[in-house]
């Protein structure tokens, strides 16, 4: 493989990795706080892309405004899901909330199938994002530079919220001990709602950029990115935001490079992530950056 090709693949991996990473952050934050795998998270990713699509086609909003609205609307969806399907189950066995999450996920996907129809829809892309740039022999889309940059900026913003603000402090506190945090006078439910909102906003941002990169959207587009992003979150160490981003990048790199170097394996591409998951869970269940979760007797 020539160096040019390799660099091009590297850019692809960087794009895919940051998209996985952004979704993974939502999984990791919710799991860190509630110990819940939010299965519906991948569907928020899908909703984000559809909201932009309908914003542009139905209401004829300028693309930029449609994007902002879509992210806000998806964040709202995330908190509503938490309020309706997860909050009543806070004191139930954890598996109950997980089954509820699976139910919500199937509900959104099938509702999407009914409302949006199963036909893949082509996505509007502003021209300036998709005019090929030639750097020597390397041809890349501006997207391949912009997506990682936006992802980086979003993660920095999130880290600022989590580590420098009061609600962020409350989030970190809840993930250590929810009961004590409640006794400290923190309104835990509001902070959890905020967590879902932030995670969902990032997932929607990822979905919108995914739709720009792979310009076709359908109601089940969130399923596999969702699974894989969860795997990225486990890889990075569940509960760690930086870990989720690193995990996403690694997963993106592995997927793109494995197919690039061994084209014969391309049919098995969707299995890589799952194999990786099982290997990590067995070798280092806490992930790369994770803290050890104690088994309570």
């Amino acid at each position: 493989m020539s160096l040019d090709m390799f660099i091009q693949h590297l850019f692809n991996a960087l794009t895919l990795g940051s998209l996985y990473g952004l979704i993974a952050i939502g999984y990791t934050m919710v799991y860190g706080i509630l110990r819940l795998i939010n299965f519906a998270h991948g569907d928020i990713f899908m909703l984000g892309a559809y909201f932009v699509f309908f914003g542009v086609t139905l209401t004829k909003l300028p693309w930029g405004i449609a994007v902002v609205l879509a992210v806000a609307l998806s964040a709202l969806c995330g908190t509503v899901i938490d309020r309706i399907a997860y909050r009543p189950l806070r004191d139930a066995p954890r598996i109950s909330a997980l089954i509820s999450a699976i139910g919500v996920s199937f509900f959104i996907e099938n509702l999407g199938l009914v409302v949006f129809t199963g036909l893949p829809k082509p996505v509007y892309r502003p021209d300036w994002l998709v005019e090929v740039i030639n750097l020597g022999n390397i041809r890349i889309l501006p997207l391949a530079l912009i997506v990682p940059a936006i992802a980086f900026a979003l993660v920095m913003g999130l880290l600022w919220i989590v580590y420098k603000t009061k609600p962020g402090l409350a989030m970190r506190s809840i993930s250590k001990d929810i009961e004590t945090t409640r006794l400290m006078g923190v309104s835990v439910d509001k902070i959890i709602a905020l967590t879902f909102g932030l995670g969902s906003a990032l997932a929607a941002a990822s979905g919108i950029m995914w739709a720009l990169r792979y310009p076709q959207i359908h109601p089940f587009m969130g399923v596999f990115p969702g699974f894989k992003a969860f795997i990225a979150a486990v890889l990075g160490g569940i509960g760690s935001i930086q870990g989720a981003m690193i995990g996403g990048m690694l997963l993106g790199l592995i997927e793109i490079m494995a197919v690039a170097f061994f084209p014969a394996l391309s049919g098995y591409r969707d299995a890589f992530a799952f194999i990786l998951l099982i290997v990590i869970l067995l070798m280092k269940p806490t992930g790369l950056m994770g803290e050890k979760l104690e088994e309570k007797v």
Binding site: I99, S100, I102, G103, F106, F107, N110, V114
Partner: peptide, 19 residues
């Protein structure tokens, strides 16, 4: 007829049972 509606109702039912 609404294709896909069956699974919408079905998954809603699962959520209601678990809630």
């Amino acid at each position: 007829g609404i294709p896909g509606m069956r699974m919408v109702i079905f998954s809603l039912l699962l959520i209601l049972i678990i809630l």
